[in-house]
């Protein structure tokens, strides 16, 4: 890198050839694009990432059966089940939902129907279907008070809910801990930690494709997103020089480790701080949007429109901070 040096014809020729080589590789480097199918990627231990067009599921398999975190949308169930069957022919025992969104719960009914809960003696009917674990707030948002029409069919509802603290099961030789996080993406978010395999399923508070969606109508808040990301940073331990070790499967996008999570947390913290700084200067929402507090992150992280766009995120952060 010799800035301001006069290039010789040789160096110019070499530069042109080199740039052409780079451009050509950049084109070649375009990898698999969403193709409507569900792809299986082994993470580590007993845990696999199932990558679909509606986001990621996490599957843990072993002699006791199958545990799946998030079931994608209902239209993908057939493909999701086929992908699971490449890993195990044992019954689906547990479904865990990290939020109430359709991309987390849409396949609940279809998958649960094929499963069976872990029960014994006279405790239940083993043909009842897989147990669906989620926080009480998830059930609240999927169901409706008696006499009113629920937004989702009853077969998709969580069968096993809780209000506070962790939900812990020991399955296929390892502790599986579902941990609530403060209201972030919604008010029913959880993360799931596979303690022996050392993998975290993050759900929709962590999206490697776009900015996170802060669903204000469902109780979301920027601070909850940050608290959830910081909580995962506390759990994650890199193996060597800030790489590997604990892997984190985001709700959408590629597999990550602590450093990817860290850069995402840093970005959202900086954006929150900027919006707060501009609010303190007396600026309105429209003035803050015009100031472009997400500018240097937009090309990589902003969705073209909607809640994960630049304006969508700024508005959600602004309203979170104004509460």
């Amino acid at each position: 890198m010799k800035a301001l040096e006069k290039p010789t014809p040789m160096t110019k020729t070499f530069q042109l050839a080199a740039i052409a080589a780079t451009a050509s590789f950049a084109i070649c480097a375009q990898q698999v694009k969403p193709d409507g199918n569900i792809h299986v990627l082994k993470v580590q231990g007993n845990v696999y990432m199932l990558v679909g067009p509606a986001g990621n599921s996490v599957v843990q398999v072993g002699p006791m059966g199958v545990l799946i975190v998030d079931t994608q949308t209902a239209d993908l169930s057939e493909k999701l089940i086929a992908a699971i069957r490449t890993l195990s022919d044992k019954p689906i025992r547990y479904i865990i939902n990290t939020s109430f969104d359709a991309d987390r719960t849409g396949g609940n009914a279809n998958l649960a129907r094929l499963g069976a809960p872990v029960v014994g003696g006279n405790l239940g009917n083993s043909n009842h279907g897989a147990a669906i674990l989620a926080r009480e707030n998830v059930l609240d948002r999927m169901s409706a008070p008696t006499g009113q029409k629920a937004p989702t069919p009853q077969a998709a509802w969580p069968t096993d809910t809780w209000f506070e603290g962790n939900k812990e099961v020991f399955f296929n030789g390892e502790p599986v801990i579902t941990m609530p996080v403060p209201p972030g993406h919604t008010d029913g978010d959880s993360i799931v930690f596979f303690r022996h395999s050392d993998v975290i399923a993050a759900g929709n508070i962590f999206d490697m494709n776009y900015f996170p969606v802060i669903d204000l109508a469902a109780g979301g808040n920027i601070q909850g997103i940050l608290d959830g990301l910081n909580h995962m940073l506390d759990i994650a331990i890199p193996e060597h020089e800030q790489e590997g070790g604990t892997y984190i499967v985001p709700g959408h996008g590629r597999l990550t480790d602590e450093h990817d999570l860290l850069e995402y947390r840093d970005m959202l913290t900086i954006i929150r701080d900027r919006v707060q700084y501009l609010i303190k200067k007396g600026m309105t929402l429209e003035q803050i949007k015009a100031a472009k507090p997400t500018f240097e992150y937009d090309k990589r992280w902003a969705a073209p429109s909607g809640p994960a766009s630049s304006d969508g995120l700024v508005e959600a952060v602004y309203k979170s901070l104004k509460k």
């Binding site: 480097a29 990898q31 790489e243 996008g253 590629r254 990550t256 990817d260």
Partner: peptide
């Protein structure tokens, strides 16, 4: 082949090489 786009990224990336005469050319993503 290089891994799919949903695979993890690393500090050193994923590299494949070939010889252009006596020059080793390497592509990494």
């Amino acid at each position: 082949p290089h891994p799919p786009d949903y695979a993890a990224h690393t500090w050193m990336g994923f590299s494949t090489g070939h010889w252009d005469g006596n020059v080793l050319t390497v592509n990494t993503d």
